[in-house]
């Protein structure tokens, strides 16, 4: 087992999963996908300004464009009164298209800026960029060391602001009636999503980012008990997907990212089937309980 690859994937999965829980509960699950596409013009502009293909200016450009994307989505939803999913669709396709045009315009002079290689890394290659100190002390892939501070940041922000995330996600109007700035919390979340997405897909590819942002939270949400438990379960399912997915990929000699997301999907369906079976058992055992009571009350209302 390649420790470097597995740990990089684990931290990407944790970062994406934790934020994904809140994105899903806010009905914005596809925002991560949107950001991973719409950052293209940001990367091109950063390249034009900095004049190099060094990854740091590109990261800045991409992260800034990620934030602009979320502002644009918010603007289209609030001011243009579009459905949230339509706003997401417009924002990222439009920005991606602008990025493609920008590349076409500026590669005429023979500049090598291909979106496949700029935008989407592959987790199998994270070991090509290692951090080595003193010439021989190998500390692991750079992508992993990029993800760890982000993980710490997210954990701290989510833990300390837990009540804020809870109330602004469940009932924004109610939070606003207490004087809590709902939009400030929204943009804090979006900045973190933007940061994680940009840093992760540069190293490991978009499918891993988008997949981990949605599937483990959705699986945890099926079991649906308490918000804290949903986050913990997300981490558990993410870990399982990474470990089993890596094994699967090695066994079939296939794509590592593909293996991990496939396993995540399989876990989702297994949990769903189990849940349906448990539900049937429970209903069969106690008919007069919750289900029966609800039906009774509906009759009273009508």
């Amino acid at each position: 087992m390649d420790i470097g690859i597995v740990f990089t994937a684990l931290f990407v999965a944790f970062n994406c999963g934790i934020l994904g829980v809140f994105l899903m509960l806010r009905k914005m699950a596809m925002v991560g996908d949107a950001i991973s596409h719409s950052v293209l013009p940001g990367i091109v502009i950063a390249y034009l300004i900095a004049g190099t293909r060094a990854s740091f200016p590109m990261l800045i450009g991409a992260a800034a464009m990620g934030l602009i994307t979320t502002v644009l989505i918010e603007f289209l939803t609030k001011k243009a009164r579009l459905q949230n999913d339509a706003s997401i669709g417009i924002s990222f396709t439009w920005l991606f298209a602008i990025g493609v045009i920008l590349i076409a315009v500026f590669t005429k002079g023979g500049i090598d800026l291909d979106q496949e290689c700029v935008l989407y890394g592959d987790i199998a290659y994270v070991n090509l960029d290692k951090i080595i100190v003193d010439g021989n002390l190998y500390l692991g892939p750079r992508a992993m060391w990029n993800q760890i501070p982000v993980f710490v940041l997210i954990s701290v922000v989510i833990l300390f602001g837990f009540r804020g995330w809870q109330i602004t996600t469940f009932n924004p109007d109610y939070a606003a009636s207490m004087g809590i700035s709902v939009s400030r919390w929204h943009y804090l979340l979006m900045s973190m999503v933007s940061l994680v997405t940009v840093m992760a897909f540069e190293a490991v590819g978009a499918i891993l980012v988008v997949g981990f942002m949605i599937i483990p939270p959705a699986t945890a949400y099926l079991i649906n008990s308490k918000l804290k438990m949903v986050i913990v379960l997300t981490l558990v399912f993410a870990t399982l997907s990474v470990l089993l997915g890596y094994r699967l990929a090695i066994y079939f000699n296939g794509s590592i990212a593909g293996g991990m997301i496939s396993v995540a999907g399989i876990i989702f369906f297994v949990i769903w089937c189990l849940q349906q079976m448990v539900k049937k058992l429970l209903v069969a055992r106690s008919d007069e309980n919750v289900g029966g009571w609800l039906v009774q009350e509906n009759k009273i209302i009508r």
């Binding site: 009540r163 809870q166 469940f170 207490m178 809590i180 438990m229």
Partner: peptide, 18 residues
């Protein structure tokens, strides 16, 4: 994902005790 207790606890949240 919240229980009755969780939701009622939101009534104790304040801008400065989040």
């Amino acid at each position: 994902p919240a229980s009755v207790y969780d939701v009622v606890m939101m009534g104790r949240f304040r801008k400065n005790n989040l």
